[in-house]
Design a protein around this nucleic acid. Structure first.
Lengths: 379, 379
DNA sequence: ATGAAAGCGCTAACAG
DNA sequence: CTGTTAGCGCTTTCAT
């Protein structure tokens, strides 16, 4: 890793370019004084002095809620001077006093899983619009436990938390609920109902996918799900059985496999397991795009084609699945909107502590592409 | 958008599931007292009282740098009580005093561009390991200008900034340098050298890609680059011309196109433009995977096959480009490591203000896949 | 309507 | 070594 890093301590590249030419490692042109100083930000006291009033008066003006306590004229003066001085309130200082930091923590399990960036983006955008900032932590990429991350965030007086990491039984979530921290789960949720959450309507998604396969003529449909410790894994599994039953399909338990992780290898392995049963099936409904990709691999390994021999459906509609070979039929989840709504729910909890906790389910949309077709028998 | 959101105010789904059964919108089971209180965190004063010493003594013990000022025995007592009380230092309060918040801002242009998540992840992980937290802002998804974002972060006393948004001429970067904020650019850089940066070695990348095409037998190679306002667009363009010249290829300026954006449509349009010249070429070297994907589209539209008719190379090695049709030959950039090193450089600047600014270039690696082959003429 | 004073939690300069 | 005092920037009683 470090081997492939190079610090150019002198220009050693032969071809030099117009402007980036001498891209060498070197100190910046030092300013006259040596190290340069940070321009001191003006504070409430500076403004007060300039206007000739007491700092608390300035504070009152700067806070919309207390502005009315100060006379129109003075307020205008203060505002003008404040602008002139480029004054910006220090939210840390005011937060110290008010216990409100306009900061929320977002914890996700893995930012490189394409599901999460749009959620984070949607949430961050929404928070920003209300003057909040987001502290981001990727719990999967570090030593420290999720509990420690939250402890750290709490120590920083975050106003609330958005968690995309929930297990179905989750002591961390329980602890947050217990302590009464404003909290919203997103993407995944827990078994209990005493916590706000924004998730996808998984039952509907499974229903749509299965209906699609049945409409194509499939009758023997296998299922590859995910870890039962997550709500997505659990709910989709049960939804599949439910939907199959309602559709009059006979369910062969051997054709139902829950992979140990939402990953490509796990998906491939699960499909191998299905093949090992020697039970016939013409389609595989998977609970996740990566599992579906794993199926692509296993099919290829078995010399089978998709969709001619076996149809495959995914779940999530990750970016670029439309460019795969074959393009993947899957369920589109409005991930950005998931993030937006999670942020909304959280802000509501923060600014309006009394309101009842809500759980939202957003509707997925079936996207039919090239990985599903009529089963081989029918033409 | 909102249409596809539904709040289940009563259970209206027919099939109910084992445990998530009654996933309805409802208030949480209220705790006895009505709204629950936050458990008050204990502070330095609480600890001091319990031990029977002055708060400042506790402070000294809790700070590793000043621990030695206090007697062993007392220190141990204090530490024990602190642990007992579950004490955690409030970094905001101490930051108010010390002007050090252990917070850094990370600004990226678009989190849904697969290039950035691994960078953020690498940086965040590295910062976390040193006790820092990351404030994340996605400058592309919001109204507020990047300048305002930075203003906001500075108001919160961030210790430094990581920017992935730099233009080649960037007033925002200039302003940061001017004010002396610890700053590291990542992925893209500016023309000047007075700012720390961690970027990919673009010249090398282009060189590798072109050498690969030449080795395959290509002699007429077209180039599709990106916006010249970014260092990546600019450097890769010039590197291509340089490499081509050094390889003895004759450069036809008409076969060099810089797309207006690093996007698929822009790539498709650029290739159309190349076709419009009616000049012959057997391969297209692009400066970005998305541009390469655009080429796939344009080729298909023109009834041409890749790589049989035209070879295509990308740049970045985004996730899943190995699953495209055809799998994309491209340059792998160690994005995670880019983030890690950016964080390292920043921490160095923060904790060691004197050290000279460094610029690092990490080496890309050519990944040969299915989108390149010998030109049609040769067999 | 405004000023004075106290304090959020913590640290740092100064005593002793 | 430890306690005292003051203050980071801001808000919020309490006076006036």
């Amino acid at each position: 890793m470090l081997l492939q890093m190079l610090v150019l301590t002198h220009c050693n590249r032969l071809h030099t370019l117009p402007s980036e030419a001498a891209f060498c490692n070197r100190a910046a042109a030092d300013p006259p004084g040596g190290s340069r100083l940070l321009k001191a930000r003006s504070n409430i006291k500076d403004v007060a002095r300039r206007v000739g009033v007491h700092p608390s008066t300035v504070s009152r003006v700067l806070n919309p809620a207390t502005r009315s306590m100060v006379s129109e004229a003075l307020a205008k003066d203060i505002l003008r001077i404040a602008a002139e001085l480029g004054y910006r309130r220090n939210p840390l200082a005011s937060g110290l006093r008010t216990r409100k930091t306009f900061t929320v923590g977002i914890i996700i399990p893995d930012l490189t899983n394409p599901v999460f960036p749009p959620i984070v983006r949607g949430a961050e955008r929404t928070l920003d619009a209300q003057g909040y900032i987001a502290i981001l932590a990727d719990s999967g990429s570090r030593e420290r436990s999720e509990g420690e991350i939250i402890e750290n965030m709490r120590a920083r007086d975050v106003d609330g938390l958005i968690l995309a990491t929930a297990k179905r039984r989750d002591p961390v979530v329980d602890a947050c609920v217990e302590e009464g921290i404003p909290l919203v789960l997103v993407n995944r949720t827990v078994s209990q109902h005493n916590v706000a959450a924004v998730i996808n309507d998984d039952e509907l998604g499974i229903e749509l996918a299965l209906a699609h396969l049945i409409a194509l003529g499939h009758r023997e449909v296998a299922y590859i799900g995910g870890p039962q410790s997550t709500s997505t894994g659990y709910v989709r599994y049960h939804a599949f059985m439910q939907s199959a039953k309602q559709s009059g399909l006979t369910i062969d338990q051997q054709l139902l496999v829950n992979a140990t992780a939402f990953t490509e290898p796990a998906g491939a392995q699960a499909l191998d397991q299905l093949f090992a049963t020697r039970k016939p099936f013409t389609a595989v409904l998977t609970a996740n795009d990566l599992l579906a990709l794993g199926c692509y691999d296993a099919l290829k390994a078995h010399g089978l084609r998709c969709p001619e021999d076996i149809s495959v459906t995914g779940f999530n509609d990750m970016p670029f699945v439309d460019r795969f070979d074959p393009p993947l039929t899957t369920l589109h989840i409005p991930h950005d909107e998931l993030g937006v709504q999670a942020a909304r729910l959280l802000l509501e909890q923060i600014e309006n502590p009394g309101t009842p906790l809500k759980q939202l389910r957003l509707e997925p949309r079936l996207i039919v592409r090239g990985s599903t077709s009529r089963p081989a028998g029918l033409t």
